[in-house]
Design a protein around this nucleic acid. Sequence first.
RNA 1: CGGGGCGUGGCGCAGUCUGGUAGCGCACCUGGUUUGGGACCAGGGGGUCGCAGGUUCGAAUCCUGCCGCCCCGACCA
Length: 451
Amino acid sequence: MLLSKYFLPVLKEAPREAEIISHQLMLRAGMIKQQSAGIYSWLPLGLKVLRKVEQIVREEQNRAGAVEVLMPTIQSADLWRESGRYDDYGKEMLRITDRHERDMLFGPTNEEMITDIFRAYVKSYKDLPLNLYHIQWKFRDEVRPRFGVMRGREFFMKDAYSFDLDEASSRAAYYRMFVSYLRTFDRLGVKAIPMRADTGPIGGDLSHEFLILADTGESEVFCHGDYMKLDVPGAGLDYSDDDAIAGIVNDWTASYARTDEMHDEALWGEVASGDQMNARGIEVGHIFHFGQKYSEPMGAKVTGPDGKDTPVYMGSYGIGPSRVVAALIEAGHDDNGIIWPASVAPFDVGLINLRPGNEKTDTACGSLYDQLTNAGFDVLYDDTDNRAGGKFALADLIGLPWQLIVGPRGLENGEVELKERATGERESLTMEAAVNRLTEWQSATRARFGG
RNA sequence: CGGGGCGUGGCGCAGUCUGGUAGCGCACCUGGUUUGGGACCAGGGGGUCGCAGGUUCGAAUCCUGCCGCCCCGACCA
């Protein structure tokens, strides 16, 4: 992509309403534009990151055996009356009346609708286990939206729903999602720790939150240092092996890990002080096992091997990709701007032509752009006639993993400069060596994050 | 929902107390000189001062009502 043909409206100064760093940087980097309290447009750079996060989430859901559907944003109030939540949900639910005076609502979540789909088609235990998910915009009319897309009213969420014949298999389904979340956050390039959670209004008896560690996180986290060393299962993982999956869950729940809300000083005291880790985190995922809470009132039953009908056991599993984007920035930035994990960076390389119009730099950049693009890199080519300082500042701000700097001075010696955003390290080398270096990085990155 | 704050060109701000017809920096446009960490000179465009009423000869400024947005707290992917 040529920067001169792209739409990247960056700001030198952050708008006053932005308080936290991720919100400031998202506005400054031209990723989002606020349209109303808690409601945002996603501009090209932001959308690119959002889509990458979404895709990683999707791939890991699929790998764990979940099947994608797409449910509408607008739902009928009748479904919610069936589950009894139409009145319970309160003002957080945006209620709408259509032209025929029918009560509708903008979905804050989809337990009711997925249960409706399930009961319409699934009648036999032979069709279980089943896990259906979708990735769709949700709306919760928060009393106080804040922190940009971190807590918007409209937000993008992946929600999965598992259906099983009995408690034991339902737990196995919960564990599969648990493990898929470990893999998902690992591929997103962040450390996420599962913590015992309150089940809240969704109800149920088993629940975990996944927190990304970031100094600016809103939740206080107390966890055992062991979590820093635990391995995340690789792509070859066999999700059909219930025992192996349960073993992984066991490893990841054996040590103490709680947010301030669930913190227990007595249990915490049992952790050796050298192992106690006090940090801050951002909740980016939440999984629930709630049994027959919805299947019973909504009549989602299957016929078991004994010929009897039983309400299915269910769980729900959420990750908010729009929040994840902000959380990744909270976890990865410096004074100059964003530092994206390789797996979700909007582009791989920022190619900087320090002297557009100069035949040598133009030719060199054209060649590099073609070579890298053909090799599968997503390159943002800064071909504008801004000054060097402005280009460097922009590249640092939007946080691409690499900056490939081409100027007349370096070309005199047949060299270009390669700068790694995360470390700030720069190196002068030939064009060929630069391409090779990037290609090596690409292979390593794919091996690490590709899934 | 309780408490606090803010609305003045795209962004950041001054001006409001003490009414006199809107200003600064950045950004933008034109021309020129420049060009390896946010250039300089000259010229230029853009704002019914959140909205509606009121007071006044005159309102960004005073009064009343409304709307929007942000922050802290209680609640949430």
